[in-house]
Structures are given as C-alpha cells and as structure tokens.
C-alpha cells in the first residue's frame, strides 16, 4: 500500500471532524439553539458555555454544530447538481469534439461563466425567496460549467489514446466508450474538482447567508452568525471568531484533501512512485 500524502490526512481529519460535529448535532447539542435565553446573553466562554453565548443567550458551540449542517448540505447538493448535469454534458461534448453539439455545449458554458455568479445567485434567491433550496440551485447552476469543462478537457486527452481506438475496433459506441473507458480515467480529475467546488460551495453559502439570502431562521448557519456578530464588532468581537474559524477549517480541510487526492491519483506521480 502506498503511503497517503500528509495533506490528504490533515485535510480529511479537519473536514471529517466538522462533518462529525454537524452530524452529531442531529442527535445532541449542548443546548437547544431555537430557544432564546436572554438571561444568559453574551456570556464569555466558560465551562458552562464552552464558546460563550450570543446576544440572545444562545450557546455558540451548539449553533456552530448546527450551522455546519446547512453549509455542508448546500455544498454537497450543489456539487451534486454540478456533477450530475455537468459531467454528462462534458462527456457528450468530448465524444462529439469539433461537432456542432460540442460547440453549443461549450459556448453555453462560456455564457454561464460570463454571468457574475454571486449577482445571479443573489438574484435567484431574492426572486424566489431566500431559502436553502434556492441557494443550492443558485450555487449548483454555476457548478455545471465547471464540471462540464473539466470532464470535457480530461475526456479529450483520453479520446486520443490508442485504447479508445481498440474499443472502437471492438465495436463499441460513443456512449459505451464514455462510460467504460473515459469516465474511470477522468474520475480522479472529477473527485479533485469536486472537493474544490465543495469548498467553494461552503464559502458561497456562507456569503449568501451573511447577506441574509441563505437558510432562514431558526435554522442556524455560519454565515448568518457572522452577520449577527458584525453588528457587535466593537463591543463583542469574540462572536465573530468562532464561526469564521469553522468556515476556514472546513474549507481548508477540503482543499488540502483535494490537493492530497490529486497527488495520490495523478498517474504521473503514481508512476514515479511504483
């Protein structure tokens, strides 16, 4: 067994830890975050409240744990939309490279890239109402061209290889070749891009919640915790630290994992190791 790259380990541990606390929040949190306890508002960190409380007396740790859920869910589903739609489109374009279908798909891609993502996301969520679902759709749409482009780019180099010619000699059609030969060989690219888009999704969701267009109260979210903390930045700067760090750790963990996976899966590096 080859040794796993260090960054893969570190990244996996960081993101798994946050994922675990988010999952744990379904079963247990130190305090209930939906009930307000004005009597305990703005308490500093203590044994009772590990990270202290906010201006409504809610336990920050509990809010952080629950806030992770929505970030992760939005990012995962948005990556799912991007992969689910983008990868088949990219494979299709590569299978018909140079043809009109390729041209249409890629120009459509360029067009989506030309739209300011954040503005459109804000437009979508503002129009159809701020909610987690609309945030997912808005972020997911902008993931589609990313995956389409990665899939097409990777597939194009595979299509020129001799083993594709061998498959064609064995009578296999474009769809079968795309599934049997192309997809397994670009899976590593897609996984790496997936972790990158996942982390960008976390950041985007945080940004949308921060401006009030993500998940709505009473659902806790890291972005909105920061927005609320900003109003008290002079008096209680402490409130802004923990949610920000949670985002950083999650995104950092995912990015490190992506880099590590790339090292692990890159055939050039792997060949050098064997």
């Amino acid at each position: 067994m080859t040794r796993l790259p260090a960054q893969l380990w570190i990244g996996a541990v960081l993101s798994a830890a946050l994922l675990a606390t988010a999952l744990l929040s379904f079963l247990w949190t130190p305090y209930d975050v939906t009930t307000l306890n004005i009597g305990a508002k703005l308490k500093p960190p203590s044994a009772e409240y590990l990270l202290g409380t906010d201006h409504f007396g809610r336990d920050l740790l509990s809010m952080l744990m629950e806030g992770g859920r929505i970030s992760i869910a939005v990012a995962v589903l948005a990556v799912g939309i991007g992969m689910g739609v983008g990868v088949p489109l990219g494979l299709l374009a590569a299978a018909h490279r140079g043809g009109w279908l390729d041209e249409v798909i890629m120009r459509g891609n360029d067009l989506i890239f030309a739209f300011p993502a954040l503005v459109i996301a804000i437009l979508i969520t503002a129009t159809f109402g701020p909610s987690a679902t609309n945030a997912i759709v808005a972020i997911g749409i902008f993931n589609i061209p990313v995956f389409a482009r990665v899939a097409r780019g990777g597939a194009m180099t595979i299509w020129t290889q001799d083993f594709i010619m061998a498959a064609r000699v064995a009578g296999k059609g474009k769809v079968r070749i795309s599934v049997e030969h192309i997809l397994p060989n670009i899976a590593n690219l897609l996984i790496v891009q997936g972790t990158i888009q996942f982390s960008l999704g976390i950041l985007a969701e945080a940004g949308l919640s921060y401006v009030g267009l993500g998940a709505q109260p009473p659902i806790a979210s890291w972005g909105r915790m920061l927005a609320e903390a900003q109003t008290m930045i002079y008096s209680h700067p402490r409130l802004a630290i923990a949610p920000g760090l949670a985002i950083v750790v999650m995104v950092l963990g995912l990015n490190l994992m992506g880099d590590g996976l790339r090292d692990l899966l890159d055939p050039r590096i792997r060949r050098a190791r064997t």
Partner: peptide, 19 residues
C-alpha cells in the same frame, strides 16, 4: 464482420485502459 479485423498499435503505454 468487424470481428474479422483487429489491430495492434505502436505505443505500448497508450494501448490499454490503465484501470
């Protein structure tokens, strides 16, 4: 009819799906 025809390529590295 295709079964009557086969091919061997130059590049011993690119001729096979590595997976």
């Amino acid at each position: 009819r295709r079964a009557g025809l086969q091919v061997v390529f130059q590049d011993p590295y690119g001729s096979f799906n590595p997976r």
